[in-house]
């Protein structure tokens, strides 16, 4: 493989990492509070509120049921409004975030729901406020499970970022299509696939490792 090709691969790899990292960060920033609200407003939880819960739940479901490729095209005006352009790596972060945030919200919700209601009751009996229960009980107790969930989100973002690449976002997916597929460069195709596989493996292993470190229920 020529040095130019290697440079191209590295550049694309960097773009994929940038898209995935930025959208993960933003998706967690949006999804975390969303997931917490979805949990605590449930019936019988610490701040039950049927209206908020069902409205938020409906929004999350609607976003999650739109296929990524359609979502990406559909929100082009929004992307243009935020980034100033609908093409490019940075522009791809907007749809990626919007599709990943509800996913993260549901993942966080299911992690938080795993917590024994008895532990929440115990904190209430000590006079903990709802906010304290969220920050000192729910999130720390569920952290190992949240880490695994976010790992899952990162991996699907790697997949989505390849799709976003095909629509002018750059990255490994873009490279694989333009060079590997359209120019019949089998070597490039194989190289991008290998990099993507390695990337997913590394992310998953890292996620497993951190989660295991945080999990104090199995010592």
């Amino acid at each position: 493989m020529s040095p130019e090709m290697i440079n191209l691969l590295l550049k694309s790899f960097g773009e994929t990492c940038y898209m995935v990292a930025a959208s993960t960060l933003l998706a967690v920033l949006v999804g975390l509070p969303l997931g917490v609200i979805l949990t605590v407003t449930r019936r019988g939880h610490i701040l039950p509120n049927a209206a908020i819960n069902s409205i938020l739940g409906a929004i999350v479901n609607a976003t999650r049921s739109t296929p990524f490729i359609i979502l990406m095209v559909a929100i082009i005006p929004v992307t243009r409004l935020i980034v100033g352009s609908s093409i490019g790596t940075t522009a791809a972060i907007v749809p990626l975030t919007i599709s990943a945030a509800p996913f993260v919200a549901r993942i966080i919700e299911s992690s938080l729901l795993e917590i024994d209601p008895g532990v929440i009751e115990a904190s209430q009996s000590m006079g903990a406020s709802p906010m304290q229960i969220i920050t000192k009980v729910l999130l720390p107790e569920a952290m190992h499970s949240i880490v695994l969930g976010v790992t899952l989100a990162i991996i699907s973002l790697i997949g989505y970022s390849a799709m976003a690449g095909a629509l002018g976002g750059g990255g490994l997916g873009d490279l694989a299509i333009r060079y590997g597929y359209q120019r019949f460069r089998m070597d490039i195709m194989i190289a991008t696939v290998v990099i993507l596989i390695a990337q997913v493996q590394i992310v998953q292993s890292l996620g497993n490792y951190i989660s295991a470190k945080l999990n104090k229920t199995k010592l």
């Binding site: 024994d116 008895g118 532990v119 009751e121 115990a122 209430q124 009996s125 000590m126 006079g127 903990a128 406020s129 009980v137 720390p140 107790e141 952290m143 190992h144 945080l214 104090k216 229920t217």
Partner: peptide, 19 residues
Amino acid sequence: RKARQNIGMIFQHFNLLAS
């Protein structure tokens, strides 16, 4: 919440924070 600080409680399944 303030008054509850005067009332301790223990449970059948202990309800400790695992983390």
